[in-house]
């Protein structure tokens, strides 16, 4: 970036662009709101469950895998940040940096192998796993 130009001036087009997008979005939503028809019907106010009457609580318990995935994402995404830093500086870091990064990646892959082996990456339900045990890595 050019040092003399202040960051705010530099970003001006982006800000204008962002404003324009906001305007369009607002126009679309607002237009629909103003133009759209209104009607009331009893069935419309129920959650859609494939046409049958909804049952049970909305706050269902969901698979722990979603949760695991969130944690893996947080961890691995953070690790990739370090790789990003290495990628741009790969030439400056030289072979020493390459070895260090390889070690880092090696540990990451080892972790992945571990996670795969303990079944943390296996999304199948218990029944699916039982039906196809051969597939297990």
């Amino acid at each position: 970036m050019n040092a003399e130009v202040s960051p705010a001036a530099n970003l001006l087009p982006l800000i204008i662009y962002f404003g324009a997008i906001l305007l369009i979005t607002a126009a679309m939503l607002g237009g629909a709101y103003l133009l759209g028809q209104r009607h009331r019907a009893q069935a419309a106010d129920e959650p859609f469950e494939s046409g049958i009457v909804p049952t049970g609580d909305v706050h269902i318990r969901f698979s722990v895998h979603f949760f695991l995935m969130a944690i893996f994402f947080v961890i691995f995404d953070m690790e990739t940040v370090f790789l990003f830093a290495w990628s741009v500086a790969v030439k400056q870091a030289g072979w020493m940096g390459f070895f260090e990064a390889s070690m880092f990646i090696g540990i990451l892959i080892a972790t992945l192998i571990y996670l795969a082996a303990i079944g943390a990456l296996d999304w199948r339900t218990r029944r699916q796993r039982r039906d196809a045990p051969v597939n297990r890595p």
Binding site: A70, I71, D77, E79, V81, A85
Partner: peptide, 20 residues
């Protein structure tokens, strides 16, 4: 800052696991 972020990620990962 990057290190702090990593720490935060690890902490929250374990924290949520424990919370679960």
């Amino acid at each position: 800052f990057l290190l702090v972020l990593t720490l935060a990620a690890a902490e929250v990962g374990i924290g949520l696991g424990l919370a679960l």
